Simulated assay, not measured.
Amino acid sequence: MRIGIDLGGTKIEGIALSPAGGVLARERVTTPRGSYEAIIAAIAALVGRLEQDAGGGGPAQVGVGIPGAISPATGLVKNANTTELIGHAFDVDLAAALQRQVRLDNDAKCFVRSEATDGAGAGKDVVFGVILGTGAGSGISVGGRTLAGFQRISGEWGHNPLPWVSHGELDEKPACYCGKRGCIEAWVSGPAFADDHWRHSGVRLLPAEVIAAMEEGEAQAVASYLRYTDRLARALAHIVNVLDPDVIVLGGGMGKVQRLYEDVPSLMKPYVFSDECWTPIVPPVHGDASGVRGAAWLWPGNVS
């Protein structure tokens, strides 16, 4: 039995898979904030419940997707927007809490691993997967292999500057947790979308509430959505110009907004260095379960 854990900024999801890949148990809990030790304890407790709910049979192999990476230079977590993890030997500490070896990878890489295997990117050579959630993580799969990169930062699209910025955006340049301003993540993550709406309307809403207001035709929400789709299109066009993937898969909370799949492809075209842009942008086949499935597959032998 394999257990996958998807550690996000707002939730921790776990899944237990049989050797044949069947789902034996699944649970989601809120991510503790402000305490590294509380995150370790929450994951350890979740693994214990999943093992029990799946019928026991001994300790499971555990894979974890985290919103960051283990630095090959220090062995410590870097680049995590769940900032409690930064500077800690998370794999070592979690292994000690679980009393077994664990395997870790970036959460977006787990997401793209799942979708490239038997999801929206199945059978495609180059798959670019994006998680538009608390942050804006991404991963790349080429020929069925998820790319890690020399410094374990392949796919860190969200920490490049938003391309083709307007004068207003140059003045605005929202702060990113990484310490820079104007990162793609600071424009297209779920919280960034809500913050942009607040800056322009003076009304503080959750991302889903802005989308609901947009669908009802509320003018300020419509304007916020149009700014968001234009920025997302520019940011993804940059990827098409560099990587030219066969498909782009959008996950996370903003990836559930169905209108994105209708609106963003045409908005990308003026920014793509080609006579045409046919790159499909699609939702994940496995939805919220993609990241956690990909984490479970950090151990070999799973069958989808």
Results as ranks from 00 to 15, higher is better:
102 V>T: 11
90 F>I: 05
65 G>R: 02
84 E>V: 12
85 L>D: 06
74 T>S: 15
97 A>E: 06
70 I>Y: 07
63 G>M: 11
98 L>T: 06
67 P>Y: 06
102 V>M: 08
99 Q>T: 13
93 D>Q: 14
80 A>V: 01
105 D>A: 15
69 A>S: 11
70 I>M: 13
69 A>H: 02
64 V>I: 15
100 R>Q: 15
86 I>K: 03
73 A>T: 12
97 A>K: 07
81 N>V: 03
72 P>K: 03
65 G>W: 10
107 D>A: 09
77 V>P: 05
71 S>L: 02
64 V>T: 03
87 G>K: 09
63 G>R: 05
87 G>Y: 02
103 R>S: 03
85 L>R: 03
103 R>L: 15
103 R>M: 10
105 D>V: 08
89 A>P: 11
87 G>E: 10
92 V>N: 04
90 F>A: 01
91 D>K: 08
79 N>V: 00
98 L>C: 09
63 G>H: 09
63 G>L: 10
101 Q>C: 07
101 Q>P: 14
78 K>W: 04
78 K>F: 12
68 G>Y: 01
97 A>W: 06
67 P>E: 05
98 L>H: 06
78 K>A: 14
91 D>C: 04
68 G>F: 03
107 D>H: 09
99 Q>A: 15
89 A>W: 00
80 A>I: 01
102 V>Y: 10
84 E>Y: 04
63 G>T: 04
96 A>S: 14
